[in-house]
Design a binder for these strands. Structure first.
Length: 554
RNA sequence: GCCCCCGUAGCUCAGUGGAUAGAGCAGCGGCCUUCUAAUCCGCCGGUCACAGGUUCGAAUCCUGUCGGGGGCACCA
């Protein structure tokens, strides 16, 4: 029995009680009820607080309400015991047979275990990373590469149609500064005062010269344009390659410049003007964002006639909506959080629903530590910690896992030393070791002629306490995936895997899976091997959501 | 001054209004002729920053204060 099935059973009982008039529910029978795994041993396998939640409106005291629910639940197949406890909790113990069936259900579902239709029919657009191609991808962008991609995988598993996009800022002054920096380097001149000065500038400048040897022999305008075009292409190709090596590929690379050239910006401004949300002042065109909660109104067309940065975002958002995306996500670093209120105001000005059609996720800062010392990151100073540096230092699996296991709301300090350790204190090793251990058991079993139980499987054989803990953990996976999607929090998957790894290792420690010596294989061995296979399935699926491999051996 | 995030064990962090607040690391102490011990077990460790409020119940929600981080452009 899974928590979902128990939840359904409870709703059925409530429906019956309501129909017969034994309880009166003014707000109707809830469609779902909370079922949780109590931390406390002795509080049953599952607990629900429905009685406490509904008692007041039903005009009863919680324990009396709970007693009625208990009566109904006890008759449900697969429920061994129901207890009313404390202020009105219902503690449910599931029959070993019903519990053990979970192993079979997981294996039968295979790669689709954890999938749901929670977001079925939704077209979701995820925009993340979107770093300017003025330098290598630095650590802040990498956090979203890991988390955003994981979120995409989670939404996909919960039924959504996901498009990953990278917004390519190739229109503004930063690109000019980048181009001029390249040109200066190629000429052997110092970097412009407002330019970029890292080593990569010299590398790219040299590469541009190799590709277009006459780049410096052209007119000043042509020369700069050459460095702009070739340099940006090279830089962007490098970023794409780094992301690809990191396991992150985008469906759409959207160029800001296209929005300006195609007239999309002008159309977006016209649309807003028609809706009465713009006005002219001081020679510029303003968007009235303040009335939608922004601190102040914002310029969208500057007095020189050029579009302000926000104008590209207006057009881009409109474009996404016209492409049919119900939900547009933009993932930004904390240093851009000030952008949220004006973007939400823009969304409202279009007549859309802020925080629904448009969601902006903010990721706090990442600091890298080596031996306890902070590594400073500064693109301009040239001491950049890039995505490639990170991958070289700890590998893709550890990097993705490390960045995805924390709440995006938290600043994080990653100690590179920890993430390279081949020991259980390194969370990614601890979790991946489960995958390796299950693989070994399945193969050693095959060598001994022991295969996971299938037909004639007696689920009640899995009655050990450690087996029950593991089965309940495995049964939780779909709920964890759904919660991660609903809350946009991929780190829940990582934390779940860490907890479940503990349950598996404890099971492994106290429940021999394979026959030893001359021992004849029994149904219990086969049942346990099925549980091992189910565990392997959950870890494969869970790690896949994070873009981390489930190794066969380590 | 205003806005966003954070404040939970010595450290790094979980904790979608529930019961006695958890994990890993660090510290102390155990289990290897092993289904490879990269695992596992025990002990130690808390004013959930502080003060009010909301309710059957608050680490969680609201208000304020303090502390840390990040922002407040006709830059992008």
């Amino acid at each position: 029995m899974t928590p979902e099935q128990l939840s359904t059973a409870i709703v059925d009982v409530l429906t019956t009680l309501s129909t017969t008039g034994e309880v009166t529910l003014p707000d109707g029978v809830p469609t779902t009820v909370t079922v949780e795994r109590p931390r406390q041993k002795g509080h049953g396998d599952y607990a629900t607080n429905v009685a406490m939640r509904l008692a007041k409106s039903a005009g009863m005291n919680p324990r009396a309400f709970a007693e009625l629910v208990k009566g109904g639940l006890e008759a449900v197949d697969g429920i061994a015991e129901v207890e009313v406890a404390g202020p009105g909790f219902l503690n449910v113990t599931v029959a070993a047979g019903a519990q053990g069936l979970v192993a079979q259900q997981v294996v039968a579902a295979g790669a689709s275990y954890g999938a749901s239709d929670a977001f079925a029919g939704e077209k979701i657009n995820l925009e993340f990373v979107s770093a300017n191609p003025t330098g290598p991808l630095h650590i802040g962008g990498v956090r979203w590469a890991a988390v955003g991609d994981a979120l995409g995988r989670i939404f996909t598993l919960t039924g959504a149609e996901v498009t990953r996009e990278y917004y390519f800022n190739d229109h503004g002054a930063q690109i000019d500064r980048f181009s001029r920096s390249l040109l200066a380097s190629a000429k052997g001149e110092p970097a412009p005062e407002d330019g970029y000065g890292g080593q990569y500038i010299h590398d790219i400048a040299r590469a541009v010269l190799e590709k277009t040897p006459d780049a410096l022999d052209r007119s000043p305008e042509d020369s700069l344009e050459t460095f702009r075009q070739v340099g940006v292409d090279m830089m962007f190709a490098e970023i794409k390659q780094s992301l690809h090596d990191f396991g992150v590929d985008f469906d759409v690379y959207f160029h800001e410049d296209d929005l300006h050239r195609s007239g999309a910006v002008a159309r977006a401004v016209e649309r807003l003007t028609a809706l009465g949300s713009t006005y002219e002042k001081d020679g510029a065109t303003w968007l009235a964002t303040e009335k939608y909660g922004d601190d102040k109104d914002r310029v969208i067309i500057k007095s020189d006639g050029e579009g302000a940065y926000l104008s590209g975002d207006l057009a881009y958002y409109l474009d996404k909506r016209e492409r049919g995306f119900d939900r547009c996500f933009i993932m930004l670093g904390a240093d851009h959080h000030g952008y949220v209120s004006r973007m939400m105001a823009m969304c409202a000005a279009f007549g859309d629903k802020p925080h629904e059609n448009l969601e902006i996720l903010i990721g706090q800062m990442v600091n890298l530590l080596q031996d306890g010392e902070p590594l400073r990151m500064s693109k301009r100073a040239g001491t950049v910690v890039t995505i490639d540096d990170l991958v070289d230092a700890i590998g893709v699996d550890a990097a993705r896992y490390a960045l995805a296991r924390y709440s995006s709301d938290s600043n994080i300090d990653l100690d590179l030393g920890l993430w390279t350790k081949a020991a259980g204190e390194n969370p990614v090793f601890y979790v991946q070791y489960v995958a390796a251990r299950t693989w070994r058991l399945l193969h050693n079993g095959a060598d001994l002629g022991v295969l996971p139980a299938s037909e004639g499987f007696d689920p009640s054989l899995l009655s050990d306490e450690k087996e029950g803990d593991l089965l309940r953990a495995l049964a939780d996976f779909p709920r964890v995936v759904t919660a991660a999607a609903e809350l946009r929090e991929p780190h829940r998957v990582a934390r779940y895997l860490e907890d479940t790894a503990g349950s598996f290792h404890r099971f492994y420690d106290s429940c021999p899976v394979l026959p030893k010596g001359d021992e004849e294989p029994t149904e219990l061995h086969r049942a346990r091997l099925l549980l091992v296979q189910a565990t392997r399935t959950v870890f494969e699926n869970g790690l896949a959501l994070l873009g981390v491999s489930a190794p066969e051996r380590m």
